[in-house]
Amino acid sequence: MNVQLFEGERVRLAPHDPDKDAEVESRWTHDPEYMRLVSADPVRPLSPGQIKKKYEEAGKEKEKSQNRFSFAVRTRADDRLIGLVRLDRIEWNNGAGWLALGIGAAEDRGQGYGTEALRLILRYAFDELNLHRLSASTFEYNTGALRFLERAGFAVEVRRRQAIQREGRRWDDLFLGILREDWERLAGGR
């Protein structure tokens, strides 16, 4: 059994290192276009110190509930932080959880890094955590994420009408889902 859960071809899923990563993550929060793709919260830049504090709080939360698995996405070539991926709100009794993934800098997008990271986290969710299904949410205007998730086997399941207000108009909030059987069909040899 050759188990390589964290190493992709060009990226790896690695633990967070807030001391090292906070600077880079802070930079991402200064890019409103990126922040609006990944979150419904009001955009606002965070300092490296605020980022570190967020990690401390998430750590405490994790100790309490054990329903969150969060990773840094790093390049294997130079161990550079390029994104974040996490599974959270896991309901163990139902085998269900939520996926979130972001590649922070515009120049790192469209390079296939996200696709690799997604392949790794799906395998982690279904082969290590033994979940039955995953959900993900994205906004109507994020057509890139929509295509990206559908290519990996996700299907749009819910369209929450007009749930997002941005740039003076209303957009739908979409929930997507993938079942273990969808993933097994697509990922056969893993």
């Binding site: 299904r133 959900s135 819910v158 009408r161 889902g177 079942l179």
Partner: peptide, 26 residues
């Protein structure tokens, strides 16, 4: 409220999976 979609096999009770339904009103 209007039905806006269903997340398939989201809840497991008594040995089978059930969908979650999501509704909204504007």
């Amino acid at each position: 409220f209007v039905l806006e979609g269903r997340t398939r096999q989201d809840v497991r009770r008594d040995g089978r999976y059930w969908d979650s339904l999501w509704m909204g009103i504007l």
